[in-house]
Design a protein around this nucleic acid. Sequence first.
RNA 1: GGGCGUGUAGCUCAGGGGUAGAGCAUCUGCCUUUUAAGCAGAGGGUCGAUGGUUCGAGACCAUCCACGCUCACCA
Length: 514
Amino acid sequence: MTEQHNQKHPAPSPSTPEHEDLNVLMVRRREELENLKSVGINPYAYEFDRTHFSTDVVSAFKDDEPQRIVAVSGRITSIRRMGKASFCHIQDSKGKIQLYLKKEGLAAYDAFKQMDIGDIIGVKGYVFRTKMGEVSIHARELTLLAKSLRPLPVVKEKVDEQGNKVIYDPFSDKELRYRQRYVDLIVNQDVREVFVKRARMVSTIRKFLDERGYLEVETPVLQPIYGGASARPFKSHHNALDVDLYLRIADELYLKRLIVGGYDGVYEISKDFRNEGMDKTHNPEFTMLELYVAYKDYRWMMELTEQMVYDLALAVNGTPLASLGGNEINFTPPWKRISMFEVIHEFTGKDLRGKNEQELRAIAKELHVEVEPSFGTGAVIDEIFSEKAEPHLIQPTFVTDYPVEMSPLAKKHRTEAGLVERFEGIVNGHEICNAFSELNDPLDQRARFEDQMSLRARGDEEAQVLDEDYLRALEYGMPPTAGLGIGIDRLTMLLTNKDSIRDVIFFPQMKPEK
RNA sequence: GGGCGUGUAGCUCAGGGGUAGAGCAUCUGCCUUUUAAGCAGAGGGUCGAUGGUUCGAGACCAUCCACGCUCACCA
């Protein structure tokens, strides 16, 4: 606050945040806070003995049983005052329940007049059904647990004649919702549910992999050499060692070192960081599952993947079906398998097999696919696939056998020259996972790294960096290994029918306020 | 980064040169089974910021800021 500003306004009271003026609603709530204190009420209580959750009270209620006494707690979300009696709803982690507060027989009724939407209270009373039919709690005791000093957006809802829930003036400003996610979570019930589903998904992944004997591990976030993916990193610095460190862009090379070390299967669910643009499907930090299993190949990994995603769909939605943008998706295994050349042929009528770069460029032009001059054959093929085939793959599909130039960590195909044993799982036109038979030939790996380094020398900032220690590990011998990466955020989007990554990350990256 | 939009009360939004608006929320009064409770009244705004045009700007112009959608790049 500037000096000039101070002259225009009275000096703030000690309880006033210095960075903003209080509007009348906030002033009023501070007055109520003082009023409550002055009658001996602690507006910030220490505990409350809850006996039931809101929805459990409602579902357990039977009209012909004797009255039950329950204690519930939660945030007031609506109030209807009628003089000597009032109704309000409170919301706890499971849902809402209506309270009936009557002056007669409720000592705290006057104090309740100083309470607002947003305040957190505890209530003890008996369960009954109102004339209008709603199961409610008739309050006998009321305790203020936390006074709210900021007005909450008030969202009203109503059930119409068809039984549909109608919401009036939903709290919908995306910037406010993401910046103040706590408000979003309070007010928008469905937002809370998305993150419950996300948590259930992750715990199901752990259960699935633990049951099969794979070891959950942790590998460095701060890495002297970043690797395992093609992306630009965030850079940091360690003062004591006086070395630059990078935030990891993938876990891959460390996890495969652990396979060299003798574990049969390792996985990590971790944050990766990529210093790139942000949009509906990209956040600078995101969550990735990576899994490596010794003595297996990519064909085996397809079976594991489709089974795991099927289990996740069941755990999250109770069904292998998902409705996405008007498409009905069925995750039931087995998923379709088709090679990249085949699927391109299917959607364009063109056979790209064995074509050289000039021929591929001619085909791209004919298909109206734009390709950069810097693209090699692999990149041209990939671009044609992304433009002409991928968007049409709605049902879960494994696209297999990618050009070797695009996949410096994948093992060469056992029968197809120029390709690697790699697959991506495509659902609803989007990639959900990436996997390969891992390259375990240290001499081939060194050659691939060197190819990447020459790309880097030509200015490709995303080309991968040669990792001498990783090569040393491979030289000791890594068993044949199948590896898988799944973007947890994007899988969550798929299973919760959200089209923005910001809706499945609690605190998506934003520009700083002000 | 380009294109298109948006920014007005705590929330959701109207208004497009001449007194700053609505619904909900808030406050006052009435109301002891209401439920988008109701009825009557009231308060609440540097109309994103800064310049400019004009007798007069929330509106028109310029610049900036923030956000959204979209295209390009990337998981």
